[in-house]
Design a protein around this nucleic acid. Structure first.
Lengths: 172, 172
DNA sequence: TATTATTTATTTATTGATAAATAAATGATG
DNA sequence: CATCATTTATTTATCAATAAATAAATAATA
């Protein structure tokens, strides 16, 4: 027997990996439950439905990404590169989080779509602010480019095509 | 009554829109059938299963993208920009094709994943060759960057967040 | 402190819906 | 009438979600 909040955290914790590996539709609530060590119906004791579960997991995941990027400190001319490295670092330390967030826009469920949209809108705003504060010349362009790198890294990782990131001299 | 091949083409033709709008899992074979003006079970007369249908649709879609990019002619120093514009053009003229291809890697079905992987591997190769032939300095980097722009444009479009592409001076 | 009441955690069993896929029947046409 | 096109009817499987039941923990009270 575990107190409610702990159990909920535990489910959220384990769900990321399931959603990242299987994708929203193939990630059954039974699989999430199993990963968390509880029974399938019990998941619905904490989350109204599967969509709400997913959105809660997304909240945490985006929070993680957010924290990591906010920690990056570098002079304007190196910030973009440092942030890019942070992306690759996250892929190594928190792969599930990255994969899940960077593929979330492919889910057509309206409630999820709306939620994901808001997350990306916010992330973009935050990135622009950070790049701007660092005194970068084109913060909006940099933010967009930064996101696009995240998408490419994820694509490369998911499809197991490292050559997509491979370029001439050290690259990214 | 229509001859077999025509009907098959018709199904493939209509399926793109359904897959693009709904995503693989929410795009039921019934919806595809309805869009093509046939009954649901009849779809299986042309495709062994849903996965095969999807892969066939992807083949066509990638072919379209391929054709469009191959048509782009520009001197080395303007090629990247011209290709970027081609992306945006495709989004306007063949939105479904673009959306579908650029989100296909989020499908976890092994047979589809493998197929999509091969398509991207090939596209990347082709892009590199094109950039190289044009005499661009870093063809691999350019190809990767090019793909990443495609991903970002798609994200921006799907989430209805035009600001992700908005940057300081005209942009992309 | 022993006993009872009440809450909180969790499971088992079940339902209803959806969707892919198969098989059998019907219709058209050369 | 034989062949190809197409539909109707049906099966099977999967899964989210609900409901009912059990077990464990905590609180109340005598």
């Amino acid at each position: 027997m575990v107190v409610r909040e702990d159990r909920k955290e535990q489910i959220l914790d384990k769900a990321v990996a399931v959603f990242a590996e299987k994708g929203y539709y193939k990630a059954t609530t039974a699989l999430v439950a199993k990963a968390a060590g509880v029974t399938q119906p019990y998941v619905f004791h904490f989350f109204k439905n599967k969509e709400e579960l997913f959105n809660a997991v997304i909240d945490r995941a985006v929070g993680r990404l957010y924290d990591t990027f906010m920690q990056v400190e570098a002079p304007a001319d190196q910030l973009a590169e440092s942030m890019g490295k942070a992306f690759k670092q996250i892929l190594q330390t928190n792969r599930d989080v990255m994969i899940m967030v960077m593929q979330a826009h492919a889910i057509s469920e309206p409630a999820i779509r709306m939620h994901v949209r808001e997350k990306f809108r916010l992330m973009n705003e935050v990135f622009i602010a950070k790049f701007e504060a660092a005194g970068m010349p084109n913060p909006r362009a940099a933010a967009g480019h930064f996101l696009s790198i995240g998408l490419l890294i994820t694509l490369s990782d998911v499809l197991e095509l490292p050559e997509l990131l491979q370029c001439e001299k050290g690259c990214i």
